[in-house]
Amino acid sequence: MSNTGASANQALDVDVGTFSATQKLNGTTMQLVFTGEADAAALTLMETFLLGIHSLAQDNGVKEVALDLRKVSFMSSSCFTKMIGWVTRVREVPEPGRYRIRIQSSQSSLWQRRSLHALQCFATELITIES
């Protein structure tokens, strides 16, 4: 199933007040922007969002997903687990259909330096961190 319509794409976006996630599909690249605090309030919607993103990326032959985390001030380990789950799902896709993940991070944020380093080590072949 192809899912390229703007309204269908925007339907994935989430906003719980303290956290929001948006996505924009542009050909074979996709831009995700997370903003706020990723904690219990964001947990379920973040998981749903990342599941939707993965399907959308596969349906549209996406080659790269750029995830902007620069405006995320905190992420709990529960939410971090949802990111790990997403990365694991991408790894399980056979190579021709697999997309790379490029994470835009803030060097001034300690959680981003530490957690994203750990995430990159978890899937070095898949993840690039930019700061």
Partner: peptide, 27 residues
């Protein structure tokens, strides 16, 4: 050890099991 916990966390549906490892490895 933290990387091992992350590997296990990827298949968990409840909780993260990461808290202790994160405190030690990241903090």
């Amino acid at each position: 050890h933290y990387q091992e916990l992350m590997k296990r966390a990827s298949t968990r549906t409840e909780g993260s099991g990461l808290g202790l490892g994160r405190i030690r490895a990241e903090a």
